[in-house]
């Protein structure tokens, strides 16, 4: 008689180290989705030989947690994730090996030993850059003023459960023309608090269009510049990994 099979051999070695990783999504790889990235990361970890800790069971998977990934089509200089390892390693060496194993455009910027507490809790807000291709600053400034004068500016986006309508105005802490591109286009900078559902730059632009009629001729280029704990002046964010370094101290 056959019995229920259970995995043979010892359970997988326990995790002994937790690393937090900041990476960038650049150039044409901004078109990669969260799932695309996670597949690429798992393969890169294997190629680089990072001694990952695995879950138990018939289908062990490497212990990786993702936090608040930027949507497909959006570039980012500040994406975060956490990995757990079965052997202690030097974070700098992991940074180099992993960056080399990932395709160009998915670039590992920083690897730090994790401090206690959840990474997700530290990602309170994001700073975004939006290049409005084909729109000049004088066209956009009055529209921003009109939007910022509002108390609420609703938009509707189709999410997994269907269309959902939500306010975009309240989470916007800062919104201004921060520069002009080489082609003369307006470059916006936004500071947006993380909410549920999350308000993304394209939601804000959709609301802006509904309120002011501002419609760029080509889709804008959106880049997340930073995410982290909100600074006390609410005009930007601090480094979410910085505290880790302080807590872990010089012996890390």
């Amino acid at each position: 008689m056959a019995r229920q099979r259970t995995p043979e051999g010892p359970p997988p070695p326990p995790a002994v180290q937790k690393l937090r990783i900041r990476y960038a999504k650049r150039g044409r790889l901004r078109f990669s989705s969260t799932r695309d990235f996670s597949r690429a990361l798992e393969r890169a970890l294997r190629r680089a030989g990072v001694p990952m800790a695995f879950s138990a069971g018939f289908h062990p998977h490497p212990l990786i947690s993702y936090a608040n990934a930027a949507p497909t089509g959006t570039a980012s200089e500040a994406e975060y994730l956490e990995i757990r390892l079965a052997e202690r390693v030097a974070p700098e060496a992991v940074r180099d090996a992993l960056d080399e194993a990932l395709p160009d455009g998915l670039d590992v910027l920083e690897v730090r030993e994790a401090a206690p507490g959840a990474l997700a809790d530290r990602l309170e807000a994001s700073e975004w850059e939006v290049r409005l291709r084909g729109v000049r600053p004088p066209q956009v400034e009055p529209a921003l003023a009109a939007y910022l004068a509002l108390e609420r500016a609703e938009t509707t986006r189709v999410v997994k459960s269907g269309p959902r309508t939500f306010d975009t105005r309240e989470p916007v802490l800062d919104l201004r023309v921060a520069g002009v591109g080489e082609d003369g286009c307006a470059i916006l900078r936004m500071v947006v608090r993380h909410t549920t559902p999350s308000v993304r730059p394209d939601d804000i632009l959709t609301a802006l269009r509904a309120v002011t009629g501002l419609a760029p001729p080509v889709p804008p280029l959106v880049t997340r510049l930073a995410q982290g704990p909100l600074r006390p002046d609410r005009a930007g964010v601090a480094d979410p990994l910085a505290t880790d370094e302080e807590v872990v101290g010089p012996e890390g």
């Binding site: 044409r28 078109f31 990669s32 497909t72 089509g73 291709r133 889709p219």
Partner: peptide, 23 residues
């Protein structure tokens, strides 16, 4: 032709399939 293609990729499903750069 990527400069002409890129703005179109914003408007299609699964744009990653058109960008290349595979390992």
């Amino acid at each position: 032709v990527f400069p002409a293609l890129e703005p179109l990729l914003e408007q299609v499903s699964k744009p990653i399939q058109y960008v290349g750069g595979e390992l």
